[in-house]
Design a protein around this nucleic acid. Structure first.
Lengths: 181, 181
DNA sequence: GTCTATAAGACGATAGAC
DNA sequence: GTCTATCGTCTTATAGAC
């Protein structure tokens, strides 16, 4: 009971998540992580063979979920409300770190084709737009997407990292208004 | 006439802007910049005493404009349409790089209190919200802000770095719908 | 204004003791 | 599972020739 919660590997991931968000992936060194952990660099390398593996471990689940959502968006006819709601929930999930690849260029540069994130983005944008929409018709889809991802992220940042009561519904409504018209 | 456009200093800034956007500030080395420039690292250091000075030179004007907008938002009674329109224009301005501090954690970490960007953000969010709005009432302001900044940025990225005709009006309308309701 | 050369340290990563 | 010690490389930055 009185223990420090979880194995070292999980603690490394928790620390890395926080530091990557604060200083970026390229701006965070293994020494930063081991320092916050209270051990040495070598201790970190016992649990992860390379810095990039920490990033991969951190992003594996969120990217898989995001990919699945993108595929559903093109396969099934998901409503805009369903799609945007899922995006808000994924962004708000404290365990997830879906905001990382979108907010840190040094990450996008690192895992470029690793999951073909850009492609998935386009699939979701297309799923949000009216069928056959093009050019400036996609602008509204981008606007709604921005509300669901960056809007949610901003509200969380302004509230100590958590979504306040009712904020999810407000964000979803705002995203739908941005989309609709 | 047949010249390569402008002094070396300006070329360095243009290259740095592009690389910082692609790989992030921490992920870009002086060697990367001098390589793209076609010279040596020392040549870069002749024009800038430190890497951070390149960043400062790049952000000076956009941050000053952003600060001025934030101050106007609390002093004069700016309409939401005026505020959001200016945000869209600042984000879309190719000379500006207002998207940099918001998109790269290694930059926010670097110039933290340099311009107190966070404070300016809050001033603009407050200027967007109805007077006296609080808690979840600010959610709509964050949503509108997200459309104006990240939405504009996303549309530009999807169109080769430029805003298509009519996109500005569409984005402004979408942001106002997200805000209103 | 740009070069070669190099300093001084941070970085990712490994070897081997405990 | 964590340590000390180290390797090789990359990084920021400087000195001095041209």
């Amino acid at each position: 009971m009185g223990e420090r919660a979880g194995g070292t590997k999980e603690r490394i991931l928790a620390i890395a998540k926080q530091l990557f968000l604060e200083k970026g992936y390229a701006g965070t060194s293994i020494a930063d992580i081991s320092g916050a952990l209270g051990t040495t660099k070598a201790a970190v390398y016992y649990h992860f063979a390379a810095k990039e593996e920490i990033l991969s471990a951190l992003l594996a689940k969120p990217l898989a979920e995001y990919t699945r959502l993108a595929e559903r968006a093109v396969a099934e006819p998901l409503t805009a409300a369903e799609l945007l709601g899922e995006l808000i929930d994924m962004t708000a999930d404290a365990e997830s770190v879906l905001s990382l690849p979108g907010n840190d260029p040094s990450i996008s540069a690192e895992l470029k084709d690793m999951h073909k994130l850009r492609e998935k983005n386009d699939m979701i944008i297309a799923g949000l737009a009216e069928p056959g929409a093009k050019g400036t018709g996609l602008v509204r889809a981008h606007a709604a997407y921005a509300v669901a991802k960056q809007g949610t992220f901003a509200v969380m940042m302004a509230n100590g990292g958590k979504l306040p009561k009712g904020a999810r519904a407000e964000l979803l409504d705002a995203a739908l208004r941005a989309l609709g018209g």
